[in-house]
Simulated scan of single mutants.
Amino acid sequence: MKPFTENVVEIIRSIPAGKVATYGQIAGLAGSPRAARQVVRVLHSMSWKYHLPWHRVINAKGQIALLDDESYHEQRLSLEAEGVEIGLNGVIDLGKFQWKPSLHLK
């Protein structure tokens, strides 16, 4: 695994229950702020293999980015089960629920 990918996997594993992180936030913490799409790739290809809490990763607007109805609802239910509130318009309050790690991971 490449260092960026390893960092992304470790960062996603570190997101605590009841919190969310954005693709761009994870990319930045992993050392490549403009690599949000690579974070999507890592999630898509490695979530099951590494048992990642994929449901805690959302887009910069505070929304679930999945378009597939089944996956969208699975992510929404998983977040709500952890106490993450999702507004009527499908937006998560990043001020309240965004993970803010005290130490930057390397």
Rank of each mutant, 00 (worst) to 15 (best):
Phe97Gly: 02
Gly28His: 01
Thr22Pro: 01
Pro101Ala: 03
Leu77Met: 11
Ser78Ile: 07
Ala60Ser: 11
Gly24Asn: 05
Asp69Ser: 05
Val20Asn: 00
Val42Lys: 05
Leu66Ala: 09
Ser78Asn: 08
Phe4Leu: 08
Tyr23Val: 00
Ala35Tyr: 06
Ser102Glu: 13
Leu79Tyr: 15
Glu85His: 15
Gly31Glu: 08
Met1Ile: 14
Asn89Gly: 14
Leu105Asn: 03
His55Thr: 02
Tyr50Lys: 15
Phe97Ile: 00
Gly18His: 12
His104Ile: 13
Glu10Asp: 14
Ile64Ser: 01
Arg34Cys: 03
Ala30Lys: 02
Arg13Asp: 02
Thr22Met: 01
Gln98Leu: 04
Met1Cys: 08
Tyr23Gln: 00
Ile26His: 07
Glu85Cys: 06
Leu66Arg: 09
Lys49Val: 10
Ile92Asn: 08
Gly95Val: 00
Val39Glu: 02
Leu103Met: 14
Ile86Gln: 06
Lys106Gly: 12
Asn59Ser: 09
His73Ile: 05
Pro33Ser: 12
Gln63Phe: 06
Ile86Gly: 12
Glu10Gln: 14
Leu105Lys: 08
Gly24Tyr: 00
Ala60Pro: 01
Thr5Pro: 00
Ala30Thr: 06
Pro16Gln: 14
Gln38Thr: 15
Glu6Val: 14
Glu70Met: 01
Pro53Val: 12
Trp99Met: 02
Ala21Pro: 04
Leu52Ala: 05
Leu52Val: 03
Ile26Met: 02
Arg37Trp: 10
Phe97Met: 03
Gln98Thr: 05
Ala17Arg: 15
Gln63Trp: 09
Lys61Thr: 13
His51Cys: 07
Leu79Asp: 09
Phe4Ala: 07
Val91Tyr: 10
Gln38Lys: 15
Gly18Ile: 10
Trp48Ala: 13
Gln98Asn: 07
Leu67Ser: 04
Gly90Lys: 12
Tyr72Asn: 02
Pro33Ala: 08
Ala17Leu: 13
Gly90Phe: 13
Val57Tyr: 04
His44Gly: 05
Gly24Trp: 00
Ile86Glu: 11
Ile86Cys: 06
Val40Phe: 06
